[in-house]
Structure formats: structure tokens, C-alpha cells
């Protein structure tokens, strides 16, 4: 990589950090419990809006993994999300009513909070519908993973988004608060992912899965990216570029092995296609706050309207992380 190109990326990173610094004024604290955090606390960061229904299970899942503290940005929720979060002991919440899109889809806010609270700590950045799965997650807490990564000197851990879907119509089985979403979303696509290398940032660009297969079959280049690097040993001068798909500095994106071996990786089980998607889609289409003029949401709307089934006879039923490992969607690397 040429020096000029490297310098350009450095400028971009500085610009993002500057943006985050300016956007800090848009955040007002609703509950700040970060004061007593241990230096090795593992933090979870998320931006959310009207996710009250999903929250109880989300918190339960990540508490069980061993997340020490949650840091949320509540972007103008009106369904009691803010109050619910503020009442939790291990949660800090900041509130804002400002534009999600103009905050780089929430990244500017999170970058600021991460800069302040995640420096030197492991930070997991996810959406409310993403559930982190890593090798041995059924027997080893997330700290076992971060300790192991510390031992390797690895600062970033990749996890591909795995879209989970139900059999039959998406709205056929209504989701109830607190329930495991994967009781209905049991299925996923095992082997239709396309990969190319993003030369600028060095990351792999992964597309595919049921969304590419059913919603973007005519325009695959627009299909959503599935590569993510959600777990990072943060430093105050790091920033995410585009959601959590890639990071700056660039070296953090080189999470894959290029000489034939396998490094360790996980998956983010994506619980998007729940019955609650319908309301979300109509709301988001109205707000137009999402990436690429909410192109994805337009497709979701079409899919929801047509009597559409993401399921096909080659859909795989989810069992556990070992199954994903065998299918080659994630890897243990040399962790045993």
C-alpha cells in the first residue's frame, strides 16, 4: 500500500474522530454507570430505537456470555426503551433525538462513547438483532475468548452476519417479549456466500445468504454486506468506518489468514426476520434514515407484502456453533 493511500486513510480516520467529537453534543446522559468499571471490563455498545420488545432477551443473552457493562445510545425511542434501560444496573444510556443518518448511522455517537469508555478494553459492537456466537461459546464465557486473543496479541475478532429466518411467512409466528428469537428463526443458508477483497480497507467483502438469494437476485452487487468485526480491543484512536463492517486503522481489518490457514472467527446470528419486522419496515421507510436511502427496507417491504418464504429445501436448521464450524461459516483457528 502506497504511503499516499495510507495517509489518506489516516486523514479519513481523523475526520471520523473529529465528527464524533462534534456529535458528542447531541448526546445527553440518561444513566451513566461507567464510573466503577474495572479496567478489564468487557463492554457492549449499541445504538437502538424502539426496541423495547427485543431488549429483555438481548440483555439476558449477552449477560450470560459475560458482558460486564452495556452502553446504549437511545435514538428517540417512544416505546419505553429508554426507561427500561435506565432501570438496569449494568447499563449506561445516552439519549438523542438527532438524525441517525447524519450521525453515520449512529457510528459518530458510538465512536465518541467508545473513545471515552472503551480505551484499552474489549468492546463488542452489535445491533439489537445480532447475537454473537464464537467457538466454544456454550462452555466458555466471552472473557475466555478475549483472554486468549490477548495472549495471541490479536486486537480484532471477525464475525460474519448469518441471517436467520423462519419456515413460512415472516409474520406467521408473532414474537413475544423475552422469548428466544431463534425458536422461530431456526434456518439459515449454509453455503452461498461470495467473497471479495476490499483493496482500500483490506477487509473481506462478504455477501449472500437469504437476502441475496431472495431479495437481491437481480442486483447482487446491492446485496447487504455480511462481514463484520464486532469484537475489538479498543483504543481511543480507532473508529468504525461503515457500521461494524470495517475499521480504521486498516490493519485491524486483516482478520483472515492469507496463506491457507484459518484464524478464529465467529458469527452474528441475525434475528431480523421476526414478526416485529413489519412495523419496523413501515416506520423506517417513512423516516428514511437508513443506508442508501433505505434500499434494504424497500426490499423487505416487497418481501413482506408478497406472500414470501425465505425457506427452501436446502435451508440448514441451526443446532450450535459446532455446526457452523463444520459448515465452514466460522472457525476455531488454533483454539482448542
Amino acid at each position: 500500500m502506497r504511503a499516499l493511500e495510507r495517509y489518506r486513510l489516516r486523514l479519513r480516520r481523523k475526520r471520523f474522530l473529529w465528527r464524533a467529537f462534534r456529535k458528542r453534543r447531541e448526546l445527553s446522559v440518561a444513566a451513566d454507570r461507567t464510573g466503577g468499571l474495572r479496567p478489564d471490563a468487557i463492554l457492549l455498545f449499541a445504538t437502538l430505537r424502539n426496541e423495547r420488545v427485543r431488549l429483555p432477551y438481548f440483555l439476558r443473552y449477552y449477560r450470560q456470555l459475560g458482558i460486564d457493562h452495556f452502553i446504549f445510545v437511545d435514538n428517540g425511542s417512544s416505546d419505553g426503551t429508554g426507561d427500561y434501560l435506565a432501570a438496569q444496573d449494568d447499563v449506561s444510556v445516552w439519549h438523542t433525538d438527532k438524525s441517525y443518518r447524519r450521525s453515520r448511522y449512529g457510528q459518530d455517537w458510538l465512536t465518541w462513547l467508545m473513545r471515552k469508555h472503551a480505551d484499552g478494553r474489549w468492546a463488542l459492537t452489535v445491533d439489537l438483532d445480532e447475537f454473537f456466537v464464537y467457538p466454544f461459546c456454550d462452555t466458555r464465557p466471552i472473557r475466555a475468548l478475549t483472554d486468549w486473543l490477548d495472549g495471541l496479541g490479536t486486537r480484532a475478532f471477525p464475525a460474519m452476519v448469518l441471517d436467520m429466518y423462519p419456515r413460512g411467512r415472516i409474520d406467521a409466528q408473532p414474537y413475544q417479549e423475552g422469548k428466544d428469537p431463534f425458536e422461530t428463526l431456526q434456518w439459515f443458508d449454509a453455503g452461498n456466500y461470495t467473497i471479495s477483497v476490499n483493496a482500500t480497507y483490506g477487509n473481506l467483502w462478504i455477501q449472500g445468504g437469504p437476502r441475496a438469494r431472495c431479495m437481491f437476485a437481480d442486483s447482487p452487487e446491492q446485496a447487504p454486506s455480511l462481514n463484520k468485526v464486532p469484537l475489538v480491543k479498543w483504543r481511543r484512536d480507532y473508529c468504525y468506518v461503515n457500521s461494524t463492517h470495517m475499521l480504521l486503522p486498516r490493519r485491524l481489518n486483516l482478520t483472515y489468514d492469507r496463506s491457507g490457514g484459518e484464524t478464529a472467527s465467529g458469527c452474528l446470528l441475525h434475528a431480523k426476520f421476526l414478526s416485529v419486522l413489519g412495523e419496523k419496515v413501515s416506520e423506517e421507510l417513512h423516516r428514511k434514515q437508513h443506508f442508501a436511502d433505505s434500499r434494504e427496507y424497500l426490499r423487505y417491504a416487497e418481501t413482506l407484502n408478497e406472500d414470501h418464504d425465505l425457506w427452501c429445501k436446502w435451508s440448514e436448521k441451526y443446532v450450535n456453533w459446532r455446526q457452523l464450524e463444520i459448515l465452514g461459516l466460522m472457525s476455531k483457528g488454533c483454539w482448542a
Binding site: Y256, S259, G260, E262, A336
Partner: peptide
């Protein structure tokens, strides 16, 4: 585990294994 890390699974292209040409 060491072999998996070093050689990987032949023919697999995924998020943490993307060999460059010739490897």
C-alpha cells in the same frame, strides 16, 4: 488445532480463510 490454523480446510473460502493465489 494447530493443523487447522496452519493449513486450514482445502477449498474453503470464508471470513477467516481467504488464501491469496498460490497459497
Amino acid at each position: 488445532a494447530a493443523e487447522r490454523r496452519r493449513l486450514g480446510r482445502p477449498g474453503l473460502y470464508m471470513q477467516s480463510r481467504y488464501p491469496r493465489a498460490g497459497h
